[in-house]
Design a binder for these strands. Structure first.
Lengths: 126, 126
DNA sequence: CCTTACTGACTACGTTTGTAATCGAACGGA
DNA sequence: TCCGTTCGATTACAAACGTAGTCAGTAAGG
């Protein structure tokens, strides 16, 4: 399995998940909106992600085109599970219970989730 | 606001959330089940948590009795929000959607959550 | 060709984290 | 009273992280 992706690295991954492949410069450009990193910083993060096997780089001329090697959905799954395991004993319902108690859910959230849960998770209907 | 609590520190907090106040030794004992830390390690973590203001220590004779200063529910809220913000744009429903898609929910989870969501919440949305 | 601008690589450095040894003070038993 | 045990405090140190500067190669333009 992949090594842990740090917060800063995650920001870089998000850019590449949104649009890949990209050069280091392109990544840095899209990051300056959210972060205030210099180009060298972004390049370091890209190198580390490359070393971790989270990215692949295909050389285009003199520069690199970076692209994610791990899917966002996998990363998200992994992180979600990590949190749920760590804080809620692996069960999702305590999370939802917690959020409802805390009033962190809007009415829209609730209806959306209800719809999702009614969707065919298990099939085989009579 | 509290400084960030690391993973190792979190394990210590869990012990104290389960049962407080405790001496350093008592904490270490309960941790050896899950972690394989030596006493000095646990003491370091306790000190750091103390420095971060996450714990209070009331001196009992020659030793300390540690107790949490931050509530577990607050920590959990904070961490949950952090994850949901970071990975799901602040919305919970995508998390649920994600988990259902991934088949990460048992039937029991689903019915429990349905019950929870039917409880009166009622909020306005942006 | 020769210079320049751009690119990845390498280096740097302070902080946080994980993990632990050691030290000095104090308490308790002999 | 003296010593060993027991605490917390101090110190240590490597790895990871956040952030960034410098270097060397090379493609492109003149």
């Amino acid at each position: 399995m992949a090594e842990r992706i740090s917060d800063a690295e995650h920001a870089v991954m998000e850019v590449l998940w949104a649009d890949a492949p990209l050069t280091a410069n392109a990544v840095a450009e899209r990051l300056t909106d959210s972060q205030s990193w210099t180009l060298p910083t972004v390049k370091t993060l890209l190198s580390r992600l490359l070393a971790k096997g989270a990215l692949a780089a295909e050389t285009e001329g003199r520069r690199f085109l970076y692209r994610p090697l791990i899917a966002r959905v996998d990363y998200v799954s992994h992180e979600s599970r990590r949190l749920v395991d760590r804080l809620f004993g692996g069960r999702l319902s305590p999370l939802v219970a917690h959020l409802t108690e805390r009033g962190a859910l809007t009415a829209d959230d609730i209806s959306e989730i209800m719809v999702l849960l009614k969707a065919p998770v298990g099939h085989s209907r009579p």
